[in-house]
């Protein structure tokens, strides 16, 4: 039986925060977008800026600079107002493609694409996508596949998983 762990229960001093992502680039695909910390929209989905030129980082999950878990950064693929977004080219990412995430303080984290999948939105394993544990990884998400012109929504998500490059 290990010693019972003990902690001081006083109000915690603010702990040094893990850097937050401010920009994501995929040079080979011409992707270069600013990243905003976002939470949940009114429907319980990940909140996204309307402008597909701005990406959303799920701020309740891991940061790309964290030691564990899946950091999720997503952006609209397109919008009627703004046209096509940078993330439209994600679907064509080849394995090994470099992804660079920068924080506001200038630190960078480098990743390499491991997989690209287009998954029907009804079948995306969100618990895996938003997993806060396990190996550190970056998950880039946008929309793709068929479009439902009656509802104005894509039927699939394009999900790119990238692993840290040391």
């Amino acid at each position: 039986m290990p010693e019972v762990p003990r902690t001081d229960a006083g109000l915690p001093a603010s702990t040094p925060a893990v850097p937050e992502p401010a920009r994501v680039e995929v040079p080979a695909l011409g992707i270069d977008v600013s990243v905003l910390p976002e939470g949940i929209d009114d429907a319980g989905a990940l909140a996204l800026p309307e402008d597909p030129g701005l990406a959303s980082w799920y701020r309740f999950g891991p940061s790309p600079f964290a030691a564990a878990g899946s950091a999720v950064i997503a952006a609209h693929v397109d919008s009627l107002q703004y046209g096509l977004g940078d993330f439209a080219s994600l679907a064509g990412a080849a394995p090994g493609t470099e992804v660079v995430v920068s924080s506001a303080d200038g630190s960078t984290a480098r990743f390499a694409v491991v997989s690209v999948e287009t998954a029907d939105k009804t079948g995306v394993p969100w618990a895996t996508v938003f997993d806060r544990t396990g190996d550190p990884r970056l998950t880039l998400i946008t929309c793709g596949g068929e479009f439902d012109y009656s509802t104005g929504h894509y039927l699939s998500n394009v999900i790119v998983t990238a692993a840290p490059v040391t």
Binding site: D78, L84, K121, T142, Y154
Partner: peptide, 18 residues
Amino acid sequence: HSNPSGVPAGSAGLVATN
């Protein structure tokens, strides 16, 4: 925690396969 219910990330159909 629980997870976001989805990622609604497109509204114009510009890259739709259909």
